[in-house]
Computed example of a mutant assay.
Amino acid sequence: MARNEQLIRQHKLLQLLEISRFGRTLEELKGELIADLGLSTLHERTVRRDVEALQAAGFDIQSDTVERGKVYKLGANNTGVHEIGISATELIALSIGRELLYPLLGTQYWRGIETFWNKIQETVPNGVFDHYTNYRKTLHVFGTPSKTYEKHEGMLKTINRAILEHRIVEIEYEPTGKPVSTRRVEPYGLAVYQSSIYVIAANPEIDDPTDRLRNWKLDRFKKATALDEYFKPDPEVDVSKYLGRSIGIFSGDHPTDVRIKLGQRAAGWVREDPWHPEQKLEFNDDGSAVLTVPASHPREVLPKVLSLGTDAEVIGPSEFRDAVAEAVTELASRYESAGQSAAG
């Protein structure tokens, strides 16, 4: 565990030295490491040993004495590490990805995106960047939300550190419409889904190993504290595989194949914009189709089916069909009441 913590500190040290034009004192480095890594304490001699270890590993870290004391900074031998060749097309692709990640604004991830983007702009020849600027005007990105996670930056640092160190996190969590409760979770990873960040974590209170992994929406976190308690990661947990099993964020180990009858227009839309990479569309002669798609919860299917209006009907299983039927009945009742009120 200590070795892992040392690697994390040293990686962060290199990042801090990279963005420092005039160097950092050991005291300044210590303060920034505590803030960025969410540490409670850190001794200055530990920072000195980390700097010396990086120097021994071949990094050109030089020291100089200035008015505020002895400072450390990256030497000229490291400047060539970030020199890259990039085309206008590659710049366009990168800038599109950057715009799609706006929800991460204010987090440590966004700072990494911005520093890398700034390095590229400073590195590429003016002609290439001018060519990129002209062609970038032909492609626009819309639909990205104004939502950001700036106020969650501290919690994200804590959770990210806990994931790397396999530490249990105590959270104050407020589900929609429910009071705040204190939970203990074992974090495995983070996921970005439809502009929201989720923490993929096991709930140790659940005994069934196939049902312990849950998705906790970061918006609902009021507080997150990394405890001095560690958990043993389950070697069977594959976060990427777990998230890919369903059409939404309600992923689970046992998704259900949901069958949906689609009219001609809806079938065309779903073919153009698939709900899931493993979906199946069985077309009829009249252009209608039956969609089979994996889902872990009726709430994943409900908004998608309702968005297609009368062009979509859930065939089964009954749990999913009943959920849509209940929502449609409630909506019909509300609109009927509203219509009567308006007529009166």
Rank of each mutant, 00 (worst) to 15 (best):
R259C: 06
K261L: 09
F283H: 13
V237R: 09
P277K: 09
L262W: 00
R259W: 00
H276P: 07
E278H: 06
Q264E: 14
E272V: 02
V237T: 12
I260G: 06
D273G: 06
A267Q: 04
W269K: 09
A266V: 02
D286P: 10
P274D: 06
P235L: 05
K232Q: 14
L281D: 07
A266M: 02
P274Y: 04
G252D: 11
D285M: 11
S246R: 04
G252H: 05
P255C: 06
F231K: 09
D286Q: 10
K241D: 08
Y242N: 03
R259K: 14
K232P: 04
P255K: 02
G263M: 10
L262C: 11
S251T: 15
L281A: 13
R245A: 06
D234H: 07
A266T: 00
S251L: 05
G268R: 01
G248Y: 01
I260T: 00
P233S: 05
P274K: 08
I247M: 03
I249F: 08
F250L: 13
S246W: 03
P274M: 02
H254L: 06
I260P: 01
F283L: 15
N284G: 15
D285Q: 15
W269D: 01
Q264C: 11
K241G: 14
P233M: 06
P235K: 13
D285G: 05
E236R: 15
I260Y: 04
V239A: 08
A267W: 03
T256A: 10
P233D: 03
S251Y: 00
F231G: 06
W275K: 05
L281M: 15
G244R: 03
W275C: 09
G252A: 08
Q279E: 14
H276C: 09
T256R: 03
H276N: 07
Q264G: 10
H254C: 05
V239C: 07
S240T: 13
V258M: 12
S240G: 10
I247H: 00
V270A: 07
F250M: 12
K280C: 11
S240P: 04
W269I: 14
T256P: 01
H254D: 07
G263N: 07
D238H: 14
Q264I: 02
P277Y: 10
S246C: 15
K280D: 12
E282A: 14
G263C: 09
I249M: 12
S251N: 15
P277I: 01
W269G: 00
H254P: 04
G268C: 12
S251A: 15
R259N: 10
L262P: 04
G244K: 00
S288R: 03
